[in-house]
């Protein structure tokens, strides 16, 4: 037993065993905290980006139109980004679990706490219109990698169309889309129409089943104002850049 102790003391005296300096632990803690903050920011960014994508492509409003709308919502969801969000959320939970304020409480509380903070952050980012502003900025500066990612977010599934009413037909109307395409919209008996869908000068969104240039509508609603403004602003910027 004495050998055991003496061996270690000898190792220390000979310099084979050295204490790590205090700054090593300070840097380690700083890295951990930076990792937590960075993971939290990435999670907030990704969650708010998911909301942005769903609002841009219109699928955000689809669940209001029954199971068909719900299917549309699921199909149009950015699953790769959702997967990455879960990955970073997991990383955040693992990093936070190192600290006593997390491991001293049941894991469910940590998970709920982290999710609540992430959702709150994503909500604030959405309220501050972070992504629409980013989209305009990236489009103006043509930032490689990110600008195409935001551009892609605008791609609508075939079953969702947006634009203005060109003319009314017997059982629906003709829709002039953002890309000047004409689509025939046909109402069913149970098509849900928002009260203001006929208002003059507003952009509308149509949800339904598409076959060629016809959509059998399950719902019609006005497009959110900020999305329209945002799109118009980007269009103006693009024209100015071309000049």
């Amino acid at each position: 037993m004495t050998d055991f102790k003496q061996q270690l003391i000898d190792k220390i005296k000979e310099g084979d065993l050295e204490m790590k300096p205090r700054w090593h632990f300070v840097v380690q803690t700083a890295f951990f905290l930076a990792g937590i903050i960075l993971s939290a920011l990435i999670v907030v960014y990704l969650l708010s980006f998911i909301t942005f994508v769903l609002q841009q492509n219109g699928a955000w409003f689809a669940p209001g139109y029954g199971w068909q709308g719900l299917m549309l919502f699921l199909l149009a969801s950015p699953w790769i980004i959702i997967g990455f969000s879960f990955l970073f959320l997991g990383l955040l939970v693992i990093l936070a679990h190192r600290y006593s304020f997390c491991y001293e409480r049941p894991f469910l509380y940590t998970l709920l706490g982290v999710c609540s903070i992430a959702l709150m952050g994503a909500y604030l980012a959405e309220r501050a219109e972070f992504h629409p502003r980013m989209h305009v900025f990236l489009n103006q500066n043509n930032v490689p990698g990110l600008a195409p990612m935001y551009k892609k977010a605008e791609t609508r599934p075939a079953a969702i169309a947006a634009g203005t009413i060109s003319s009314f037909t017997e059982n629906g109307f003709m829709l002039k889309t953002e890309s000047d395409e004409m689509i025939r919209i046909v109402f069913k008996q149970n098509t849900k129409l928002a009260p203001e869908w006929k208002n003059e000068g507003i952009n509308i969104m149509v949800f339904g089943n598409r076959a060629s240039n016809t959509i059998i509508a399950i719902g019609v609603r006005p497009e959110r104002e900020f999305l329209k403004t945002n799109r118009q602003q980007r269009a103006t910027n693009t024209v100015e850049t071309r000049r």
Partner: peptide, 18 residues
């Protein structure tokens, strides 16, 4: 047991400033 306990003391010494 002996090796691992020695290992514990080595780690304790190395990380003692934490």
């Amino acid at each position: 047991v002996e090796d691992l306990v020695q290992d514990v003391f080595s780690k304790a010494y190395i990380n003692l400033r934490s």
